[in-house]
Nucleic acid binder design. Structure first.
Lengths: 218, 218
DNA sequence: CAACGGAATATACCAAGGTATGAAGGCGGG
DNA sequence: CCCGCCTTCATACCTTGGTATATTCCGTTG
């Protein structure tokens, strides 16, 4: 069992994937072999539309994209993807780019912007950075999403109590604030702790921070 | 002309300042009048060295800088300033820039990278963004610095107790962890609350977050 | 050396947090 | 209509947090 061929283990980290979108098939193939040579998975597409039609791979992944694409431009595609669930780090390539284009891409969060011809190592460095960013991002997203799900399982009152408690008020102060008896606040508070799966008040405060609670009504 | 010369009010928000560094005097003057026309303070320098010799103005402020400067390059100056106490947002200008230069500047956090000739409005927009960034940044810095100062006033034991308490442990658990009696932990804890000026445990937890406590020894 | 502050501990007391049991009213869905 | 859920509150009891007072030990500094 020195793991070789069959890798259907559920806890497998899933090989990092690079998605290449370029209308030049030769370049696609060259990039594909470059990336595979360092152990990365690769998906190739000739246009943005093809990519959108496909199912996005598991994280970590990133996009390597020519700024000039058939159909939408690379920059437009960047803004499009940024607000979609398959948001991922982007590395641009260009043959005839200009500075304003570069600035726009970088402002919108591109990891790098390489001019053709580029050195293989520059591309690999950019991809490594992008994949690491994606890993971190999806990790943070998951934590945030999980907490948000728990939070949504709270009733309106419970959310209210959680907000006040995590802002540092004592039970009696919370009670006065929302016109309840202290004992009722304690009950809600207990429910909040259980439902949020918080093992301590410190825990709950950190969750409230992640949720952005308390900033809301300032 | 209601308020012109004498503005020595202590709580004054201090006019936002744009610092221009360019070896072309004509351009300096043009930018100066542009910025003053929208009510901004301006400081003009012919080189990076001149700026470094001067006393940096109060926030909010930002730097407008030609990429090609006498002496150090704009990019080198950027890395230099980034780690210095007078760190501030930078907007680059260039007559003969290229894409790799642009990418490097943007990766290093430049707010914008304008090619000469640029439209006045583009410059003003960039400056407005930069000043807003600087305001936010210095606000966050100040909060963090204040908390760090309070934290440094704690004794070694108190720091230890603060770390464990904000990680969610009960007094008795803290006591067991560092081999103390519970009563002693309570005393240290009380000292921590007073010294850190925390009005509640929630407060203290948030401060610990700002300090990056608990991540340290995982 | 003496004084001082940090650290540790104990006893005692009070305030606050937390849970269990019981009970009551409102409101929506089967 | 009845059941379940949310909400509210009370009494009782126990745990935990927080403070005060007092004592001891240690190391540094005037």
């Amino acid at each position: 069992m020195s793991n070789s061929s069959s890798s259907r283990s559920p806890a497998a980290p899933a090989a990092p994937t690079v998605i290449v979108v370029d209308d030049d098939e030769q370049l696609r193939e060259a990039l594909s072999s470059l990336f595979r040579s360092v152990g990365l998975r690769v998906e190739l597409y000739g246009s943005a539309a093809e990519l959108l039609a496909a199912k996005p791979p598991a994280v970590p992944r990133c996009l390597v994209l020519d700024i000039r694409l058939p159909g939408v431009s690379g920059l437009d595609f960047q803004s499009q993807i940024a607000t979609s669930p398959m948001n991922m780090p982007i590395i641009f390539m260009t043959g005839h780019g200009d500075i304003p284009m570069t600035v726009r891409a970088m402002k919108a969060g591109a990891v790098d912007f390489l001019t053709k011809p580029f050195r293989d190592q520059d591309m690999l460095d950019a991809v490594a950075t992008a994949l690491e960013n994606d890993r971190k991002q999806s990790e943070a997203d998951k934590a945030s999403t999980d907490i948000r799900a728990l939070y949504q399982s709270l009733t309106a009152r419970e959310k209210e109590v959680m907000s006040l408690v995590t802002s540092g008020l004592m039970n009696k102060q919370v009670a006065a604030q929302i016109n309840l008896s202290e004992i009722t606040v304690k009950i809600h508070r207990g429910h909040v702790m259980r439902k949020m799966n918080a093992k301590s008040l410190a825990d709950l405060v950190r969750m409230a921070e992640t949720l952005g609670l308390g900033i809301t009504k300032a």
